[in-house]
Write a protein that binds this DNA or RNA. Structure first.
Lengths: 204, 204
DNA sequence: CGCAAAGTTTCCCATTGGGCATGTATGGTG
DNA sequence: CACCATACATGCCCAATGGGAAACTTTGCG
């Protein structure tokens, strides 16, 4: 029983940790190879090889090279959901989303995750149709979670959570688009702020 | 030269017309088979067979069964872009989008394209990840066209066209989501109207 | 009518996802 | 600590797929 507590609590068990490590390793291998040789010049086999696992095992971790590449994105958005949940209950839905996002970028700045790499990765994703497709699909899956995360919060009369989160995510996407179009003239933060400001305004 | 005019003008040439016909035939075959047997129980070969073309030729028309299925969507969104262009120059960006959409649904009502079928198709798309993915990707490709179509129109101060169209399309997506969740209690029109109203309001 | 261009088909092969069976590491239990 | 159920990795295999090369057919301009 004591073990059970430990398992559920902090230690996910060696097994789980190893899985997570491998997943991360595969992800990074995929990323490196894709940037180096271009996505379609990289086979699943090559990625698996670079990560020291068999091709078959790769399939156990990801549904394809695209998923492997976008694993970082999924993680990032997952933590975004968590941060939204952590926002003070007094924050409005829109504000909670914005603050959570801001917080997310504070963290990644500290972690040294430079904008530079993100820039590259995102350009890669925008260029390749199959990547773009999977990315958007995974975001939709996340949208519902995000909606639930803001469902209990204050929002303008008659505006449903789904609409707020959809608008929020759309703004993020547009911001990334803008940011990738220019060459680092502005911070991603700034661009996102701008997009979110615009999105929060009335259109009619 | 006279012929050249005809080619560019109305007659797309027999060749082009046949291509369009085939494309449509393949699309419909795909749709029928997918609804009948479920998407993943239908091979590309089966679709090609049903449309009386070779498997290889299928690839000349579409990049995969998903694309074949979503061809209808692409057409529909293409005409939406055209309708937006046709809106009176006096209309604001947001209004032009809404009116063009309304118009699009007037047309499909006249054409007898029942909501019933759309309901089925959309549920299909929402359930199957690979379909959802491709659908979203094709919408992004369209987003830029739509943005250009409203670029010259009146919009709230400091709000860029991309943001407006992104919001618009996001609202459509949410509306489809809502509409598919309930069983025909409301018209798609109504639901879309509701989503668009909400989206046009300020969030902050 | 004749020919060049566009389109279709056949043949082919590398890549891929996933089922199944077999090894191998992990962790709870007596 | 030894033991075993279970989860995980791997190897083998096959059907599906995308797309290149080349042969063949259709279209339509001159």
């Amino acid at each position: 029983m004591g073990k059970l507590v430990r398992i559920m609590d902090i230690t996910p068990g060696l097994r789980e940790r190893k899985k997570a490590e491998t997943r991360q390793a595969v992800h990074e291998a995929a990323l490196r190879l894709a940037i180096e040789h271009g996505l379609d010049n990289v086979t699943v086999e090559a990625i698996a090889d670079a990560a020291n696992i068999s091709r078959r095992t790769f399939s156990n971790y990801f549904d394809g090279k695209e998923d492997a590449l976008l694993y970082g994105d999924e993680q990032r958005l997952g933590t975004l959901v968590r941060r939204v949940h952590e926002q003070p209950a007094g924050s409005s839905a829109w504000q909670a989303l914005r603050d959570a996002l801001e917080q997310l970028y504070d963290e990644s700045d500290e972690a040294g995750g430079s904008d530079r790499e993100l820039h590259l990765r995102t350009r890669l994703a925008m260029r390749h149709p199959s990547l773009l497709a999977r990315q958007l699909a995974s975001r939709v899956r996340l949208e519902s979670e995000l909606s639930r995360a803001v469902a209990g919060r204050a929002r303008p009369d008659g505006v449903d959570p789904e609409v707020i989160t959809a608008a929020f995510l759309a703004a993020l996407r547009i911001a990334m688009q803008w940011w990738c179009a220019e060459q680092e003239s502005r911070t991603l933060r700034e661009v996102m702020g701008r997009a979110l400001d615009q999105m929060s305004r009335p259109f009619a």
